[in-house]
Simulated assay, not measured.
Amino acid sequence: MTYDPNVIRTNKAPQPVGLYPHARAVGNLLFLSGVGPRKAGSKQIPGVTLAADGQIQAYDIATQCRSVFENVKTILEASGSSWMNLVDVTVFLTNMKDDFATYNQIYAEYFADNQPCRTTVEINCLPTPIAIELKCIATINDNTHL
Rank of each mutant, 00 (worst) to 15 (best):
I140E: 05
D88H: 11
F100L: 15
T2Y: 07
D98G: 09
T119L: 11
D60G: 00
T2Q: 10
S33P: 10
I132M: 03
N95S: 14
C136S: 03
G18V: 06
Y3A: 09
I140A: 05
L134K: 02
F100W: 14
M1P: 09
L30I: 03
H145R: 14
P5W: 06
P14Y: 09
L19G: 11
K97D: 15
M96V: 06
A40D: 12
D113I: 12
A13G: 09
L146P: 01
Q115G: 13
L86T: 04
R38H: 10
M84V: 07
T63D: 11
V68E: 00
N124Y: 10
K73P: 04
I56V: 15
E70D: 13
G27P: 01
T139V: 07
P14W: 07
V72E: 02
T94W: 02
P14R: 10
K39W: 00
G80A: 05
H22E: 05
Q64E: 09
K135M: 08
M96F: 14
N11D: 15
E77H: 07
K12V: 12
T2I: 13
N71T: 00
A62C: 02
I130E: 15
G34L: 07
A131E: 03
P127A: 10
Q55Y: 09
G80C: 04
A23E: 03
A112N: 11
Y3H: 15
Y20R: 12
G27T: 05
W83M: 06
I8G: 02
I106P: 11
Y103W: 13
E70P: 00
I56A: 10
T139C: 06
N71Q: 08
N141H: 13
D99N: 12
V121S: 12
R38E: 07
G54A: 13
P116Q: 07
V87N: 04
C65E: 00
L86R: 00
I137L: 13
Y3F: 13
F92C: 09
L146C: 09
T119E: 14
L76T: 08
L134W: 07
Y3D: 12
Y20F: 14
P14I: 06
T102G: 04
V68C: 02
K97N: 15
P14D: 08
L32Y: 05
G34Y: 11
P21S: 10
T63I: 07
I45G: 01
T63F: 00
R24L: 07
I8A: 02
Y110M: 06
V26K: 11
I56M: 12
N95G: 09
L32R: 01
P37C: 06
N143H: 15
A23S: 04
V87F: 02
